[in-house]
Design a protein around this nucleic acid. Sequence first.
DNA 1: GTGGTCTAGACCACC
DNA 2: GTGGTCTAGACCACG
Lengths: 121, 121, 121, 121
Amino acid sequence: MGHDFHTNQPIYLQIIQRLCRQIIRGELGAGDKLPSVRELAVQMGVNPNTVQRVYSEMERLQVAETKRGLGTFVTEKESRLKQLREELMTEQISSFISDMKEMGFTASEIVEGVRKTLEHE
Amino acid sequence: MGHDFHTNQPIYLQIIQRLCRQIIRGELGAGDKLPSVRELAVQMGVNPNTVQRVYSEMERLQVAETKRGLGTFVTEKESRLKQLREELMTEQISSFISDMKEMGFTASEIVEGVRKTLEHE
Amino acid sequence: MGHDFHTNQPIYLQIIQRLCRQIIRGELGAGDKLPSVRELAVQMGVNPNTVQRVYSEMERLQVAETKRGLGTFVTEKESRLKQLREELMTEQISSFISDMKEMGFTASEIVEGVRKTLEHE
Amino acid sequence: MGHDFHTNQPIYLQIIQRLCRQIIRGELGAGDKLPSVRELAVQMGVNPNTVQRVYSEMERLQVAETKRGLGTFVTEKESRLKQLREELMTEQISSFISDMKEMGFTASEIVEGVRKTLEHE
DNA sequence: GTGGTCTAGACCACC
DNA sequence: GTGGTCTAGACCACG
């Protein structure tokens, strides 16, 4: 079992996130084959139902495609992958900033906080 | 009803978050009285039990104190409030950065992304 | 306010306990006058209703007596006070031992634990 | 209904206490499955919500762990269980001793009282 | 009036 | 099946 039980985010979302990140990092490229449902289920120490859900969801997001009898693959549309990278980045940043503002932090506090945290690593 | 139904975060956590943000923004100061359980329940369009849970949790976090028969109050320990502000800020920033890194973004991409997004507002 | 708000035991019981302990320690002797309801209420930072309850309860326990127009006094029956001391001690010890046994500690573990804790003070 | 109504301690605390004692007595071992919420609710003659609260609290104390969709289990960390035993013992003893001292009993009176009471059983 | 606990019963996501 | 959350409405002790 390679996933984190301690968080309360649904396991299938954790797995989707992990796969998407591998994709935008380039570890998984357009058209690459994803593990079979059963394989990934074993790898992750998870019920096959859960993996099934992961793949359905990724298909809905047009990030993966299922070819009947062959398996599930990263979409072949490279443009969709670039778009995905942008989407995830923008989404992440805006939600971060809006949260910080809601907590009353100023723009400069935010930039400084991020810079310092990145330095100290 | 003033809370978000479209998110999957439990209502009581949403309310805690909202109150904590009001506190660290300084809208609620040390020692201030919080609304009574029943009052807040009406304000939020929520069951009193849910608010009860909010206040219990905030007391556990030492952000609120309850005085029997009198009501629930923001803690009188100013230091705890400063600490809370730091905690929430650090927590927010680190989780943001670790997410971004996991997606393969570099430190400079992150800082730039944040700076640009803040400018365009 | 000289009492402890942090515990969840009712305030009136805390006050009764405190008074009884002063009595069996001999700080308050048989026949001594107790403070008036209003006085004690101010001393303790507590509502007079609460003190009223304290005195009623102590009267029920035959530890205090109220003389109309004069005030409330520690009972004059010295024997009752000795008895009280014994009662409280026995009660305390038996409930302690039965708790420890219920937790699976042996007689010798209990005696040793108590001895050691008393030494290290 | 298997719990004490005649005490003023909340039912959920009584149940936690009972479970913790079973654990430190070794009747429930590390990793053992606890009854499901609904099961225990029936056993105890109590509402499922009350048991829910018991399990949440025990998880917060790191005495229990819940596995989504599977159930609630005694923590697998044996060290935590040893620690729990120590904690409960120390807690019990110190509160007993401080109570006795506050009542004016001397160290030797305390030790003797405990020894004698244990002999007469 | 306040918070604290409890029951009854519901719906949800997850495995 | 499991735990997690929520509503509705009740009763209690306390100040």
